[in-house]
Nucleic acid binder design. Structure first.
Length: 287
DNA sequence: AACTCGTTCAACCGCCGTTGC
DNA sequence: AGCAACGGCGGTTGAACGAGT
């Protein structure tokens, strides 16, 4: 005999979570921590599958989630990491504090994918889509392709970071040196649009510079996330907290823009991880 | 105002490696 | 050792919403 079934499929509720369900789940996790997800719905008084509870917690209720659109820096990191890791969203999310794999995956599919396609980059391979774009989206007349002031595309492939870009600027005249002297795989030109990509590699950017230095480094954030129960004490000012009161709960639901600092999570990360987080945090606050 | 269409994202589904019995 | 549940992951779906007509 193996284990008991995960949950009784009959009577299990599906669909969007209600505020009441959220409250029950939050209360349970804060009281008991994350244990056996199979037991959570029963113990928390929820008619949900344990899997659904885990998903709701990790993707939405977790207090260290940042919420909101990804910042430019985060987006650039996602693109770069995707170029190296592919659709391994959980690995990518592990490098972006406060972001979930689901969130990054959604953002990729709805925003970044389109941006890359618009730039003539295959979002899967991160390689140029010159042929496809010429034949499908916006066919470029041969006459225009022969003009430097037209929209001739120049491939930007940065081997060290796997970031690929295609420039469509008319400032190609200024970049002839780099394109003519390189091999096909390594050739690149500097133009307005490609500068946007190159900006992602700014050496002054601590996030990216750290990222680039640590090609094979372990994830910035340990994937085995643990509930820092202690940090929640700050919320209720109650060391013996057993559950959230209505005020605290409403505060959580209303405050979708919280960060690590807000919860005293700083102690959960080492100096480097905190530095990365602080950089992203500051960038967002400046916007 | 009513309808259509496109976009977004929370949630579900199914698969797979791990682990407990 | 083998079966089956668990936990996690990536792909997909569909309801909600906004923009355009």
């Amino acid at each position: 005999m193996g284990r008991q079934p995960c949950c009784d499929k009959l009577g299990v509720k599906k669909g969007p979570w209600t505020a009441d369900e959220d409250k029950k789940l939050i209360n349970f996790i804060l009281t008991n921590g994350q244990c056996c997800w199979r037991a959570v719905p029963k113990l928390a008084g929820l008619r949900r599958c344990g899997k659904s509870c885990r998903l709701r917690w990790t993707n939405y209720l977790r207090p260290d989630l940042k919420r909101g659109l990804l910042s430019d820096a985060e987006e650039k990191m996602v693109i770069d990491l995707h170029a190296r890791l592919g659709n391994r969203w959980s690995k990518i999310a592990a490098r972006l504090p406060g972001r979930t794999d689901n969130e990054i995956k959604n953002h990729w599919n709805t925003h970044i994918k389109k941006k890359l396609l618009k730039m003539g980059i295959d979002p899967v391979t991160h390689e140029p889509l010159i042929k496809e774009e010429n034949s499908l989206d916006q066919p470029i007349p041969e006459s225009d392709q022969n003009k430097n002031n037209g929209h001739q595309q120049v491939v930007v492939v940065l081997e060290s970071t796997s970031v690929t870009a295609v420039a469509t600027s008319s400032e190609l005249d200024n970049s002839s040196t780099s394109s003519s002297s390189s091999s096909s795989e390594n050739s690149f030109c500097i133009t307005d649009e490609s500068k946007l990509i190159l900006d992602t590699l700014n050496e002054n950017d601590p996030v990216l510079s750290y990222l680039l230095e640590a090609n094979d480094a372990p994830p910035l954030i340990d994937s085995s996330w643990e509930l820092p129960v202690k940090s929640f004490d700050n919320i209720n000012n109650n060391n013996n907290m057993t559950s959230w009161d209505d005020e605290s709960f409403n505060w959580l639901l209303d405050c979708q823009d919280f960060g690590i600092h807000d919860f005293g999570f700083d102690n959960c990360f080492n100096d480097v991880e905190l530095e990365v987080f602080n950089t992203i945090y500051d960038m967002e606050n400046k916007q």
